[in-house]
Write a protein that binds this DNA or RNA. Structure first.
Ligand SMILES: [Mn+2]
Ligand SMILES: [Mn+2]
Length: 311
DNA sequence: GTGCTAA
DNA sequence: TTAGCACAACGCTTA
DNA sequence: TAAGCG
């Protein structure tokens, strides 16, 4: 239970004594960023990120040998083998007719435990175990093909424009990879199928206004070089990288909450990395706080759509 | 990355 | 004590 | 039913 060396040691987090291994292993070969650097980042940012993970089942995407090594997903925890202090939730899986013990990342100790398992990124559900079938937001997930990022910006601003017309707040962040995420807070009031239908409605309006740039066609081969507006993420069990999550990509980019004023032709998502975002977060605070708030009234939004001739 | 088993 | 090994996803949509 | 997709 004692410290060994700087590569393999125990860290006391609250009541928990965490065994951290291979802290010197390079996870990002092009950047010289180690597993320990990732752990340090999450240690610093825990109070910002944990609210977006709390009580949400996790799809772990593990990279035990760094971003160029083999990776795998893990959802089911073996309750016989994991530490008893971890919080899990048993959820029935229809496709396999069995129960899955999902891990819940509810505190800093779990955050660092998962990072030590090789979880570079955090992929929580859009709903919590409190209301499993009712997501806290609608997701408009913008996934570019080989588009100029200016087109992604243009698409996000079109989502914003439509939501402005409907007098409804929405919030933007970089995905940390190539795209952008726009979330519309809904405060776990509506079921996934309802929220998915709403998102599809918005996605269709975007494609109507930007037919050359955006698409909701699922098969890549039929999509052309267009930005995929992925409304299908609004389903139980589907996940997106959370706000403040690192991504397993060169540079160790971070999914970074943005002010809408920053969503302009100068925006470059590769600029936000673990090497510089902490300073930004100190300055800006949690720009996404309202995403966890009360949420909009969907009935009211749909009423506005039906009454507005431009919709 | 971890935990179990066979050597 | 250790080298070797098994094991770690789902829920749709679309053809 | 199987493959594709994120
Ligand atoms: Mn995306
Ligand atoms: Mn997507």
């Amino acid at each position: 239970m004692n410290s060994k060396n700087e590569n393999d040691f125990y860290l006391k987090v609250g009541e928990t004594n965490l065994h951290l291994t291979n802290q010197n292993k390079i996870y990002f070969p092009g950047d010289g960023i180690s597993k320990g650097d990732i752990l340090n980042y999450y240690n610093e940012v825990s109070t910002l990120i944990v609210p977006y993970l709390k009580d949400r089942p996790e799809s772990m995407n593990r990279f035990p040998n760094g971003i160029n090594g083999a990776s795998f997903y893990q959802k089911d925890m073996d309750l016989e083998k994991i530490p008893s202090w971890l919080k899990t939730e048993k959820i029935y899986s229809e496709s396999n007719d069995k129960y899955i013990d999902y891990l819940l990342c509810n505190d800093k100790a779990t955050l660092l435990y998962m990072a030590n398992l090789g979880c570079i990124e955090f992929n929580p559900w859009n709903s919590t175990i409190k209301k499993m079938d009712k997501p806290d937001w609608a997701v408009i997930d913008l996934d570019p093909a080989k588009n100029d990022f200016k087109e992604v910006v243009k698409t996000a601003l079109t989502v914003k424009k439509i939501m402005d017309e409907l007098e409804t707040e929405c919030y933007c962040k970089t995905s940390g990879a190539t795209g952008l995420h726009v979330y519309i807070p809904l405060g776990n009031q509506y079921r996934y199928d309802t929220v998915k239908l709403f998102s599809e409605l918005i996605a269709n309006k975007v494609v109507e206004r930007l037919p050359e740039i955006a698409s909701i066609t699922r098969p890549i081969g039929n999509r052309g070089n267009k930005i995929y507006i992925d409304f299908l993420q609004n389903r139980q069990g589907q996940t997106l990288a959370s706000a403040y999550s690192v991504r397993p990509r060169p540079g160790a980019t971070v999914s970074t909450p943005l002010e809408w004023e920053e969503v302009n032709e100068k925006l470059s998502p590769a600029k936000f990395t673990i090497k510089n975002v902490l300073k930004r977060f100190d300055k800006k605070g949690d720009l996404w706080k309202p995403v966890l708030g009360k949420g909009a009234n969907l009935e009211l939004i749909l009423k506005k759509i039906s009454e507005n001739p431009t919709h």
